[in-house]
Design a binder for these strands. Structure first.
Lengths: 238, 238
DNA sequence: GTCTATACACAGATAGAC
DNA sequence: GTCTATCTGTGTATAGAC
């Protein structure tokens, strides 16, 4: 799959998060009109993401958030009871949406080789589409409460487990080599994460997500596929 | 090389940082006695690292630092003119020491295959020995001033360039495949970073640094070495 | 629903005693 | 060299007008 195709297959995650937050927290929010809530939640999350990436969530003050979102301090506190809650809700709702899309698209494939390719691609495409959210989530997870941080860690491990299971399945079916599945999954995960953690670096070098996906698939396949035929990878023009 | 051997070949980095800071900043520090300075710098950096990893540098207050290090607020400010300066000095001195060791050990090797292995191992061993510093450095780099952040980024790119050059050299000599050297170096770097970014995860699974080094070398070699003989990697006992 | 004004706590930093 | 006491700014959060 190419990134362009992927974009057509999934809904607008930004809207989805806001709608889910509305449904889940409507009794805690002091405002009643759905339209108003959604509109302002979008503003709040958008600005949180922008400032949060720029200088970190801790360094963002509620006054920053207020002035940049054009909502008064008072208004902000009718949506969230504390600054901490903004972070908690934003990260946890994002995680839900992501794991939903990831699992759904992987399950469509049946063969291990195709499953692995899909897992890699969908993960990269998701992080491409929501790259600010992913970067923010990675950097700020440590500022969550212990329970919420545990949720974030588990969510990451879940993705890794998905990959590990694909590798195990492929090993059983004889298409993948007898490797350490757990370690291999970890390392593949690290490659996937590098895409959103070092996004700026790859942009500067004109590497787009399709190019990166193709490259790491060739890297991964050289290790996991049984009796690999060595494919030389074309040198990118500098 | 094994991690145990490595430990004997390098000096104590903690002491080194403090001595270098003393030499470089002796005129800015309000204290005169070298012994006192070194002793207190060690305390300050040690506590900064501990609290900084625990809850982030921004969240650490000077009062935290004061009470945990048993130095009064006033004393702290006779060593550093601001909280920000502690971060700046600690990170920049650390970078100097690390790049020094890395370059020195890589240059001892002459053949590309051995050079690559050494680069991977030394990087892993360094991050193992100073893993708190590396984690802290990674997480707090964004809180530096623009100029200092640029230095941090350049320092990372320098490591990557070292690896890239080894790959290019090996390609010329016919021992490495014709791959995209720049992308390959990036991905290898990502694997190396995962070791200190996810240290806790690997500890839980009883993966030590020697084991990790061996694994990612087999992963990397399957991709970069010309006409690879597929080595199956032994399954680790769970 | 949204605003302004303000309470209150706590941060970084310094002055000056010892 | 090190301490305590204190200044001043700024942070989160709320009360109550509109």
């Amino acid at each position: 799959m190419k990134y362009d195709e992927f974009l057509h297959t999934i809904p607008d995650s930004r809207m989805d998060i806001c709608r889910n937050v509305f449904l889940e927290y409507r009794d805690k929010i002091k405002i009643k009109k759905e339209k108003t809530i959604i509109k302002n939640l979008e503003k709040i999350f958008k600005v949180t993401l922008r400032i949060g990436i720029d200088k970190g969530f801790q360094a963002m003050t509620m006054r920053d958030l207020s002035s940049t979102s054009n909502l008064s301090m008072g208004a902000l506190y009718s949506y969230f009871s504390s600054k901490e809650e903004i972070l908690r809700v934003f990260l946890s709702e994002g995680r839900k949406i992501i794991s939903q899309i990831l699992v759904e698209l992987i399950e469509k494939e049946k063969e291990p080789v195709a499953k692995l390719k899909t897992a890699v691609e969908v993960h990269l495409f998701l992080t491409e589409k929501m790259h600010k959210w992913f970067y923010f989530s990675y950097m700020e997870a440590k500022n969550l409460s212990p329970e919420e941080r545990e949720n974030a860690v588990q969510s990451e491990l879940y993705t890794e487990k998905l990959i590990e299971n694909i590798l195990i399945d492929g090993d059983k079916k004889g298409v993948f080599a007898k490797i350490d599945h757990s370690l291999a999954a970890s390392v593949i995960k690290a490659m996937l994460q590098d895409w959103y953690l070092k996004r700026g670096k790859y942009s500067k070098r004109n590497i787009d997500v399709d190019h990166y996906a193709e490259f790491i698939m060739s890297f991964i396949n050289s290790f996991v596929i049984v009796q690999p035929v060595k494919k030389s990878y074309p040198q990118s023009p500098v």
